[in-house]
Structure formats: structure tokens, C-alpha cells
């Protein structure tokens, strides 16, 4: 290989690495610099006392508290909904499924993983409208529907992570388990799932990150700019990413803009925390994966 081509390759790789990283630092640095000064208790709780707000004895009207609560509820609810289905589907794919059915389901999961979140949101919305007609107006776009929509969105990720974790179990374990005379379900419940739990847990955390940041899917399924802390499964709610989205286009003045920067920083920290945690689990239990 000629020297100049080597240099070109090396230089190109170096430049693209630097380019990407500086792009990220450019945008995130802006958020951190502008967001840091606005980080305060007042940003979250407004003029309500934090203790009273946290005990839900007094409501917060001009802080991010309702949006943060909304996002936390959404994250927990959707992961709780998606986990059982995701894990069981993963188990089925790695232990029970075979032949055409398995290939078909595998294709479905790949497709589902690629479907844009706004399309999933549109699905959730039409589902909500259907429910609204059936239930004569008691159920409409709401926290519950949004959580259901998000759980569809993160389902493929959970399935794939479960499959990967199950596939990483060494052959010796399989042999030992069958030699002990365990039935397939016994083996899965008592041995394989516990062994795969770090990987599954990691998938769950990645799913939480996705739920916390996704805006498009909830935009169509009941999130609003003003609703207060979540109060009912089938009530409207606020969420952090939607608050950021709204402020970006219709901030009323410098204070609201500062709130937007603060909210972005909080969401960024929340997602960094979740992803850091998942990376930690990965390096702890599978030191060889990146």
C-alpha cells in the first residue's frame, strides 16, 4: 500500500472521528453551558416547596416537576408492560420456536424494530380512538395508551437482548442441565433465565432510555403541554421530551427558554445515567462485548 494512501486512510479515519465527536460536543456543550445556570430547585418545583410537591400535597404550576413525574411514570409503565412479553418472546425464539414460524417471527421483530416511532404513535392513536368509541368516551389518548404505545416501540429491543443473553449461555451448561433431567421449562426458569438476567436487565434499561427520550410516539397519544403531575391511568399527562419540544418552538420569553435548556440538561443526564448503567452491566458481566 502506498504511503499517501495509508496516510489518507489514517487521516480520513482520524478526521471523521474528530468530526463526529466535535459535532456532538458542539450541540451538547451548548446545552450544558446554557443549562447549568438554570439548574435549581425552582426549575423543577417552581414556587412550590419541594417537600410538599414530592409528597403530592401541593401542586407545581411553573416547574418541570409534572413533566418529570410524567416521564418517570411513562418509563416504568411501558417497561413493565413490555418486559414480560419481550422476555417470553425471546425465550420462545431461543428454546421453543423452530422452522418457518421462528424465521417469520424473527422477520417480524426486525421489522418492528425499524418501524418509525411516529408510525407506532399513529397506531397507538388509532387504537385509542377505537377504544374511545367502544368505551363510549371513557378511554381516550392518555398515559396508559402512551405507555402501551411505547411498550410496542421497545418490545423488539427487549426480545433481541433476551435472545442474545440466552445464546451466550455456554454449551456445557445446557449439557449439565439436561443430564440432571430437568424439563425444558424447569431448565429455563431455574437456570437459563437467572444466568441471562444481567443481559435481560441491560435490555430493560436500554428500553427505559428509549421510553424517556421518545417524543414522536407520545405526541400522538395524549401528551399535553399543561396537565399537572400524572393522576390517572387514563388521564392526559406531561412529559419531559415533549416539554422540551414545545419550548423549542413556542417559548414565551427568556425564563421559559432557560427552562427549556434546564429540561434538556435533565433529560440528557437521565439518559446518560441509564446508558452508563447499561454499559456498566455489560462490562461487568460480559467483559468481551464492547
Amino acid at each position: 500500500m502506498k504511503r499517501w494512501r495509508r496516510l489518507l486512510l489514517h487521516g480520513g479515519a482520524l478526521l471523521s472521528t474528530l468530526g463526529l465527536l466535535s459535532g456532538v460536543f458542539f450541540f451538547l456543550g451548548h446545552i450544558v453551558l446554557k443549562g447549568m445556570p438554570s439548574l435549581s430547585l425552582a426549575l423543577i418545583f417552581g414556587d412550590t416547596s419541594p417537600l410538599k410537591a414530592l409528597l403530592f400535597t401541593q401542586r407545581v404550576f411553573n416547574g418541570l416537576f409534572p413533566a418529570i413525574c410524567g416521564t418517570l411514570c411513562l418509563v416504568l409503565l411501558s417497561v413493565v408492560l413490555a418486559l414480560p412479553a419481550g422476555i417470553l418472546t425471546g425465550v420462545w425464539l431461543s428454546h421453543f420456536g423452530s422452522g418457518r414460524a421462528k424465521a417469520l417471527l424473527s422477520l417480524c421483530i426486525d421489522t418492528l424494530a425499524g418501524v418509525p416511532s411516529i408510525v407506532v404513535g399513529l397506531f397507538g392513536f388509532s387504537f385509542a380512538i377505537l377504544l374511545h368509541k367502544i368505551s363510549h368516551g371513557t378511554v381516550g389518548p392518555s398515559l396508559g395508551i402512551a405507555a402501551l404505545t411505547l411498550s410496542v416501540l421497545v418490545l423488539p429491543g427487549i426480545v433481541r437482548n433476551t435472545q442474545l443473553a440466552l445464546a451466550a449461555i455456554p454449551r456445557e451448561t445446557h449439557l449439565a442441565v439436561s443430564a440432571m433431567g430437568a424439563t425444558p421449562v424447569q431448565a429455563i426458569v431455574r437456570v437459563y433465565l437467572p444466568m441471562a438476567s444481567p443481559g435481560i436487565f441491560r435490555g430493560a434499561i436500554l428500553a427505559m432510555g428509549r421510553c424517556a427520550e421518545d417524543t414522536a410516539a407520545i405526541m400522538l397519544t395524549g401528551v399535553v403541554a399543561t396537565a399537572g403531575a400524572p393522576y390517572a391511568l387514563f388521564g392526559r399527562f406531561e412529559a419531559l421530551p415533549f416539554a422540551i419540544f414545545t419550548i423549542a418552538s413556542e417559548y414565551s420569553g427568556p425564563e421559559e427558554l432557560a427552562q427549556g435548556y434546564g429540561a434538556s440538561l435533565i433529560l440528557l443526564l437521565l439518559c446518560a445515567l441509564l446508558f452508563g448503567l447499561s454499559a456498566l452491566i455489560a462490562s461487568r458481566f460480559h467483559p468481551d462485548t464492547p
Binding site: R59, T226, R236
Partner: peptide, 23 residues
């Protein structure tokens, strides 16, 4: 929205049992 928000905040401050969402 500004009027709705201001009025809703006033009402919700008076009566903790009321939830008003504005979109």
C-alpha cells in the same frame, strides 16, 4: 392558551380536587 392557563392555575390553586389539562 395564556388565558386558559392562567385561569386554570387560579382554579387549581383554590381547589385541589380539580385537574385541568390544556392542549
Amino acid at each position: 392558551i395564556p388565558v386558559m392557563k392562567a385561569l386554570a392555575t387560579k382554579i387549581m390553586k383554590v381547589s385541589p380536587g380539580i385537574r385541568i389539562s390544556i392542549a
